[in-house]
């Protein structure tokens, strides 16, 4: 049980048991990374005041997968509804039953619509540079991978990503 014989035992060729243990720990890591939380590298200008254009690592809380406990104002990471295999990070602006204004951009007019059951309305913080629900409509909550809760790298830019929306003052 001492450390040195254990380290020395690593010098021998791996047995089948060693390989099984390594595979098992890979699955355990994958389970943590998809069900509990993990770090992800972001890219793109759509969330610019909150998340910079390039090279920002964020921590994603996967307990919020499939929209569990997501509220309006949270930043979520989701499977892109149109481009398979890619993800996107946007801010939730409407939950089922909320009314949102779909602003199609210049010359396309505005339309008020109600977010349908099981969907949410997502928009980037950088409105001119973001392709979001204004383009592809409400996305199913089932596509949500998790809630983005913190910037971790670069370290000088670290911080919590907060839900900026506040309840209006009761008068």
């Amino acid at each position: 049980m001492t450390l040195i014989p254990r380290l020395l035992s690593l010098l021998r060729p791996p047995t089948a048991g060693d390989v099984i243990v390594v595979v098992k720990y890979c699955f355990i890591f994958h389970f943590f990374a998809t069900h509990i939380g993990g770090f992800a590298l972001t890219d793109g200008p759509s969330m610019v005041p909150t998340i910079n254009v390039r090279g920002v690592w964020v921590y994603i809380d996967h307990f919020a997968r499939r929209g569990r406990g997501v509220r309006v104002g949270d930043v979520v990471d989701f499977h892109h509804p149109m481009v398979q295999g890619s993800g996107a990070i946007k801010r939730v602006m409407g939950m089922p039953g909320d009314f949102v204004v779909k602003d199609g951009g210049e010359g396309r007019g505005k339309m008020m619509m109600q977010v349908p059951d099981g969907h949410c309305w997502v928009m980037g913080d950088n409105l001119p540079e973001s392709r979001d629900s204004r383009l592809y409509g409400p996305i199913p909550l089932a596509l949500i991978k998790g809630k983005v809760i913190a910037r971790v790298s670069p370290w000088s830019d670290r911080g919590w990503i907060e839900n900026g929306l506040q309840r209006p003052e009761e008068s």
Partner: peptide, 20 residues
């Protein structure tokens, strides 16, 4: 799952109206 889909395939998907 999402690759190579063809007309006539029976698929299972997460309901858009109820994520669970």
């Amino acid at each position: 799952a999402g690759e190579g889909l063809k007309r006539g395939m029976v698929v299972a998907y997460r309901s858009p109206t109820n994520p669970e």
